Simulated assay, not measured.
Amino acid sequence: MTDLPYHHGKLREALLARATEIIEGVGVEGLSLRQLARDLGVSHAAPGKHFRDKQALLDGLALDGFRSMNARITAASEADGDHRARFVRIAQAYVDFAVSHPVLLTVMHSTKHHPDASDELRNIGEDGIRIARALIAEAQDAGELASGDVESLALVCFVSLHGAALLAAGNLLDGASVDDLTFATTELLWAGMVAGVPAPAETRDGTSGRRLR
Rank of each mutant, 00 (worst) to 15 (best):
L58F: 00
K112L: 06
G128P: 02
A93Q: 10
P198V: 10
K49F: 12
L11F: 08
T182I: 02
R133T: 00
L173E: 10
L172E: 14
I90A: 03
H113P: 02
D64G: 14
G125Y: 04
D141R: 15
L181C: 07
H83A: 13
G170L: 02
T203Q: 09
S208N: 14
A98P: 03
Y94L: 09
D179H: 09
R122G: 09
G25F: 01
A154L: 04
S160R: 08
A79W: 13
R130Q: 14
G30P: 13
G30E: 12
G27Q: 11
V88W: 01
A93W: 11
V99H: 06
G148I: 02
E13D: 15
T74V: 13
V103M: 07
R211F: 14
A85T: 12
Y94I: 03
D127E: 15
R52C: 00
A164H: 09
E13V: 05
T207W: 04
G41Q: 08
L36H: 04
L161Q: 03
E21H: 09
T74I: 10
V28M: 15
R89I: 01
T207G: 02
L121A: 12
E144R: 07
G27E: 08
L104C: 01
S118I: 10
L166M: 14
H83Q: 06
Y6N: 10
V150Q: 07
T20L: 02
L153T: 14
V88E: 13
L4Y: 07
S32I: 05
E78Y: 00
P200C: 11
H8N: 13
P102G: 11
S110V: 08
G25P: 04
L212D: 07
P5R: 10
R84E: 15
D149Y: 07
N70A: 03
A62Q: 11
H101I: 02
R67S: 06
E120C: 06
T182Q: 03
A199E: 12
F97W: 13
L4A: 09
A164T: 15
T186D: 02
I73G: 04
V178L: 13
E144K: 07
A199F: 06
R210S: 08
D149F: 06
A191S: 12
I124G: 00
A199L: 12
A17Q: 13
S100T: 11
E187H: 08
G9M: 12
G9K: 14
S160K: 05
N123G: 07
F183V: 14
T203A: 10
L63Y: 01
S160I: 00
G209E: 08
A195V: 05
V194G: 00
